[in-house]
Design a protein around this nucleic acid. Structure first.
Lengths: 188, 188
DNA sequence: GTCTATAACGGGATAGAC
DNA sequence: GTCTATCCCGTTATAGAC
């Protein structure tokens, strides 16, 4: 508990960043060690089950962020238009305008698989549910709002892939715009 | 050139499958060796620069497939509706109904990066261009057809990520349906 | 053109001192 | 709770026989 020590929250923050930037398979323990300033043994003190447990911690953090910054905002008392703009601003920041990957996607396409699949489902369902509630509020029938949300999240994930492949952030920007348009055509 | 030997084309086929299933970072030379039935030294005989060169060969193969099976079909003399259905059938087959990843996406999000980025751009641009020409034929103005195609390919890529995360192929199926709809509302 | 064998390195993970 | 030192294994890659 020494003052100079990095907190567990900060450790998970760094893990989040490393996995987001390098991917789960692409990030080595040495990378994690460098990013946190902690030796490998210290890392195993915090995460006895190693990299897999680190991924789960990152997944929990991602879920918490989605819960408070997306689902939470979506449920708040602000006008629909404002809520949507806040969420779009957050996504734009997290993904650096479309130039960094999504940590959920990186874990989903990694070799971890089955152990963390439940956590991934929870995170995506929470995200999709929040977008669906916004879509429904904007006037869509419930069923259509559900598929809209799934398709929209997929579109965002794919836009990040496209950027990685081509360097073009256009698809990402248009995806965010499409969400904003939801809020413009209604009373909120 | 012995009869029992596997051809270079077949080797690249197996490489394609391994990288598609395991990802570039996730596939080891042992995996490749097992999939091809070739020893590691034989692999280095065919690909002196190792894994990176294997990825480039796979990328070239992917580009060739897109060129003949997507761009080629899109330019053929068949009715628009038929061309689109052929392309959709191919995509459904390549991605096993949405249950396997795209090798382009896997390379794009791997640690290979800069060396192969040109090849990735070429492959995606070819794909996007083919979809754009179909969209334009269906009645969209040129500019809108271009963004439609980019967004549609992004949507498909993201749908595969979503399936990996949640097991749900709904987004993939709806993406294919959206392409089919392009062909239904026109004379072709 | 493929094999066996092995080098050289980095990966994840652990022991034990402090 | 962090460190140094180390283990074991898999990885990429190479050498040389056939």
């Amino acid at each position: 508990m020494a003052a100079a020590s990095i907190s567990k929250d900060e450790i998970v923050d760094r893990l989040f960043a490393v996995f987001q930037e390098q991917g789960f398979d692409g990030a080595s323990l040495s990378d994690v060690s460098r990013a946190t300033g902690l030796g490998k043994s210290s890392l195993y003190h915090h995460f006895p089950d190693g990299k897999l447990q680190m991924a789960q911690a990152v997944l929990e953090r991602a879920t918490a962020v989605i819960d408070s910054e997306i689902a939470g905002v979506a449920k708040s008392a602000l006008p629909l238009k404002v809520r949507i703009r806040k969420i779009v601003a957050l996504l734009n920041q997290i993904y650096s305008g479309g130039r960094t990957q999504c940590v959920l996607g990186r874990i989903a396409t990694s070799s971890v698989r089955s152990d963390t699949l439940d956590g991934l489902r929870v995170a995506f369902d929470l995200w999709i549910g929040a977008i669906a509630s916004l879509a429904e509020e904007s006037g869509m029938p419930a069923r259509r709002a559900g598929t809209f949300a799934e398709d929209w999240v997929a579109r965002l994930q794919g836009a990040l892939i496209m950027q990685a492949a081509t360097g073009d952030t256009g698809a990402f920007e248009r995806a965010l715009d499409a969400l904003i348009e939801l809020g413009e055509k209604d009373t909120g």
